[in-house]
């Protein structure tokens, strides 16, 4: 098992490389989902307020 973690002496380079990749994978899923949730909430808020919202961006 410790053989596995030492990675033939490359542990110092290999594990940080895997860690930074894992971080990117997790962060991008997390931010994408959070983004969608907040966009949904914002849209719901506008709907329940009953106002058409401000015209402008994206309505050309």
């Amino acid at each position: 098992m410790s053989d596995f973690f030492s990675m033939g002496g490359y542990a110092l380079f290999l594990w940080p490389a895997y860690a930074v990749t894992l971080l990117a994978i997790v962060v991008n899923v997390y931010t994408a989902r959070r983004d969608l949730q907040s966009a949904r909430m914002e849209a719901r808020r506008r709907l329940s307020a009953g106002s058409p919202g401000d015209p402008g961006r994206g309505q050309s």
């Binding site: 966009a39 914002e42 849209a43 506008r46 015209p55 994206g58 309505q59």
Partner: peptide
Amino acid sequence: AEILRRERN
């Protein structure tokens, strides 16, 4: 998310 924001109205 991007579509929801753009199509807000």
